[in-house]
Computed example of a mutant assay.
Amino acid sequence: MRVLFIAAMVTLLAGCASNVMTDYNSATVFGNYTSWAYAPSQKNSGITSLDDARVRTAIERELSRKAMRQVVDTEADLLISWQIVPEERLEQVGVGLGFGFGRGNFGWGVSAPPPVREITEGKLVIELADRRNSEVIWRSASRRYLNESQSPETRRKLIDEVVAEMFSKYPPGLN
């Protein structure tokens, strides 16, 4: 019974872990912001990537749910920028092998570590800046990653989920 209780608690605590991290300027009055635009550096330069379109759609949907309106950047209260930051990690792709021999409390063993490969994944980061002073007032970064092996539908769902969770923490103090 004790093992079952511990397993249930671990599952509950793991479910409470957030998939995004947020940071913000605590001196900011977030209720003063009612309009937004993409930062000039975020504007299209002609070609829009697939992930760019997915992130833009998700951001626009979440901010419209917050009753914020999109305007031209010269009239906006907030300027929004985002990027997919590449991060590299190692992934185990097999199992290690080993053997040993011995008797009693003494023995010898040899083993080989499992093979690994380096994988590049992308972490979504969204920043909101006050247009008047160009200072970032809110930032959110995903703990879930995009990678090249994901299908287009999986990427779209992941981006939608991550952006929704990010903006569930905006404005800070209301959740």
Score class of each variant (00 low, 15 high):
Gly31Arg: 06
Gly31Thr: 05
Gly31Tyr: 05
Asn32His: 14
Tyr33Ser: 00
Tyr33Asn: 02
Tyr33Gln: 03
Tyr33Cys: 04
Tyr33Arg: 01
Thr34Arg: 09
Ser35Phe: 03
Ser35Arg: 08
Trp36Val: 07
Trp36Asn: 06
Trp36Cys: 04
Trp36Gln: 04
Ala37Tyr: 01
Ala37Val: 03
Ala37Arg: 04
Tyr38Lys: 02
Ala39Trp: 08
Ala39Met: 09
Ala39His: 08
Pro40Phe: 04
Pro40Asp: 02
Ser41Asp: 05
Ser41Cys: 14
Gln42Leu: 02
Gln42Lys: 05
Lys43Phe: 01
Lys43His: 08
Lys43Gln: 07
Asn44Ala: 15
Asn44Met: 14
Asn44Trp: 10
Ser45Tyr: 11
Ser45Met: 14
Gly46Asp: 12
Gly46Gln: 03
Gly46Val: 07
Ile47Gly: 04
Thr48Leu: 12
Thr48Cys: 10
Ser49Pro: 14
Ser49Glu: 09
Leu50Cys: 14
Leu50Ala: 13
Asp51Ala: 09
Asp51Gly: 11
Asp52Asn: 05
Ala53Met: 14
Val55Trp: 01
Val55Ser: 00
Arg56Tyr: 03
Arg56Met: 07
Arg56Gln: 10
Arg56Phe: 00
Thr57Asp: 15
Thr57Leu: 15
Thr57Val: 13
Ala58His: 08
Ala58Gly: 09
Ala58Leu: 04
Ala58Asp: 02
Ala58Val: 01
Ala58Cys: 09
Ile59Gly: 06
Ile59Cys: 10
Arg61His: 13
Arg61Val: 10
Arg61Tyr: 06
Glu62Pro: 06
Glu62Val: 02
Glu62Gln: 05
Glu62Phe: 00
Leu63Ala: 07
Ser64His: 14
Arg65Val: 11
Arg65Asp: 12
Arg65Tyr: 12
Arg65Gln: 13
Lys66Arg: 09
Lys66Gly: 03
Lys66Trp: 03
Ala67Lys: 12
Ala67Val: 06
Met68Ser: 04
Gln70Asn: 13
Gln70Gly: 08
Val71Ile: 06
Val71Asn: 06
Val71His: 01
Thr74Ile: 07
Thr74Leu: 09
Thr74Asn: 11
Glu75Leu: 12
Asp77Glu: 06
Asp77Cys: 09
Leu78Thr: 00
Leu78Phe: 07
Leu78Pro: 03
Leu78Arg: 00
Leu79Asn: 04
Ile80Asp: 01
Ile80Gly: 03
Ile80His: 00
Ser81Cys: 03
Ser81Phe: 00
Ser81Glu: 03
Trp82Tyr: 05
Trp82Gln: 07
Trp82Leu: 05
Trp82Ile: 00
Ile84Val: 12
Ile84Thr: 07
Ile84Gly: 08
Val85Tyr: 10
Val85Met: 10
Val85Lys: 10
Val85Leu: 13
Pro86His: 00
Glu87Met: 10
Glu87Arg: 05
Glu87Ala: 14
Glu88Lys: 15
Glu88Asp: 14
Glu88Ala: 15
Glu88Arg: 11
Glu88Gly: 14
Arg89Tyr: 12
Arg89Cys: 12
Glu91Cys: 04
Glu91Pro: 13
Glu91Tyr: 08
Glu91Gly: 09
Gln92Val: 12
Gln92Ile: 10
Val93Lys: 05
Val93Trp: 10
Gly94Tyr: 13
Gly94Leu: 11
Gly94Asp: 04
Gly94Ala: 10
